[in-house]
């Protein structure tokens, strides 16, 4: 039953992305082009979502737990570190170049245009590469198996 709600949530999200115009990279790029052909539509997408989610979350969090899980899984970090800042800068650069952020990138593939598929694959590759890099760094830092780095030096 829980998957019914998850599926419904996904459908609402996909509808929202497509209906709002966010799956159109030209529209997103124009939102970022405040000194040129500015299209403020995206501000309304975010504003309307915030208007719903801000009070909605308050209400939901007043319950002991979610309907189908033991706890609310909320990010616990509170420090503004270099990773957050660096990651956000990078994301913005890619977003500006392509007019695509993760959800619209997936929805845009439905046009059947191959370049959108290439973008989505590159995005997935970037996510996996970064997470592998972090894992590798962790194992090097804890001085466990260092064979991979040794092999590289050979």
């Amino acid at each position: 039953m829980k998957y019914f709600y998850v599926l419904l949530s996904g459908i609402l999200f996909g509808l929202g992305i497509a209906v709002s115009g966010m799956a159109n990279p030209a529209k997103v790029q124009n939102f970022l082009d405040i000194f040129g052909t500015w299209d403020p539509s995206l501000a309304l997408v975010m504003g309307a979502a915030l208007l719903v989610v801000t009070p909605g979350y308050r209400l939901i969090f007043s319950a002991q737990k979610p309907r189908f899980a033991e706890t609310f899984s909320l990010p616990q970090k509170s420090d503004i570190d270099r990773k957050l800042v660096g990651g956000a800068v990078l994301f913005g650069v890619g977003w500006g170049i392509s007019g695509l952020c993760p959800a619209p990138a997936l929805v845009a593939m439905l046009t059947g245009i191959g370049q959108f598929v290439i973008f989505a694959l590159a995005m997935l590759t970037g996510m996996v590469l970064y997470k592998q890099f972090v894992l590798l760094q962790g194992s090097v830092n804890t001085a466990t198996v260092n064979t991979e780095t040794n092999n590289d030096k050979r």
Binding site: V93, A120, M123, T125, G126
Partner: peptide, 9 residues
């Protein structure tokens, strides 16, 4: 851009 969005996010 795709790689950068992936790594950045």
């Amino acid at each position: 851009a795709g790689l950068v969005v992936g790594v950045g996010t």
